[in-house]
Amino acid sequence: MKKASLLFSFFLLSLMTVMAQNQNQFPSQVWHKGNIFMVDGTALSGLVKYDMDNNLVQLQSETVTTYTASNVATFEIYDETYGGIRKFYSLPYALNGNYETPIFFEVLTQGDNIALLCREYIATDTRGMNNWGGMGMNPFWGPPNFSGYRLAFNYYFLKNGRLEKYSMKKKDLFAMLPGYDDEISLFMRKNRLEHDKRGDLLRIAAYYNELQN
Rank of each mutant, 00 (worst) to 15 (best):
F174C: 10
A152P: 02
L173R: 14
D182G: 00
F157E: 00
R150D: 09
Y208C: 01
N154W: 05
E194G: 01
N160H: 07
M176C: 12
Y207P: 04
M188Y: 03
R162N: 13
F153V: 13
Y180R: 10
A205L: 07
R189F: 12
L158V: 14
D172V: 14
D181W: 12
D181Y: 13
D200K: 03
F157G: 01
L173A: 14
L173E: 14
A152E: 05
E164T: 10
K169A: 15
L158R: 14
M168S: 13
K159A: 10
K190G: 06
K169V: 15
I204M: 12
L186S: 03
E194P: 00
I204E: 04
M168L: 14
Y155Q: 04
K170M: 12
G199A: 06
Y156D: 00
Y156E: 02
K165L: 04
Y149W: 10
A152W: 01
R189V: 05
N209T: 02
R198C: 06
E183C: 00
R198Q: 08
G148I: 06
N160T: 08
R203F: 10
L186N: 03
S167W: 15
R150L: 07
E164S: 11
L173I: 15
F157M: 07
D200H: 06
D196M: 06
R150Q: 09
M168Q: 13
D200Y: 03
M168K: 13
R150A: 07
R198M: 09
Y149T: 08
F174R: 05
R198T: 11
A175E: 12
Y155H: 08
K190V: 09
K169M: 15
G199Y: 03
K159F: 14
G161R: 10
Y166F: 15
I204D: 05
L177Y: 10
K190R: 08
G199C: 03
Y208V: 01
S185D: 03
R162E: 12
E164N: 11
L173V: 15
R198E: 11
L151Y: 09
Y156C: 02
D196Q: 07
K171N: 13
I184A: 02
P178K: 10
D182Y: 00
D200W: 03
I184F: 04
R162L: 15
K165G: 04
D196Y: 10
A175S: 10
D200R: 00
K190P: 06
L177M: 12
N160A: 09
L193E: 00
R203D: 08
F187C: 01
F153C: 11
A205D: 03
S167G: 12
K170Q: 13
R189C: 04
F153A: 12
E164K: 14
F174P: 05
D181G: 08
N160W: 04
S185A: 03
I184D: 01
D200I: 01
D196N: 11
N154F: 05
Y180M: 13
K170Y: 10
R189Q: 06
E194F: 06
S167Y: 14
G199W: 04
K197R: 11
F174N: 09
R198I: 11
Y166S: 10
N160I: 08
R162F: 14
F187A: 01
S167T: 13
A175H: 15
R162H: 14
A152I: 00
K170F: 07
L201G: 02
R198G: 05
R192C: 02
K165E: 10
G148E: 02
N154Q: 07
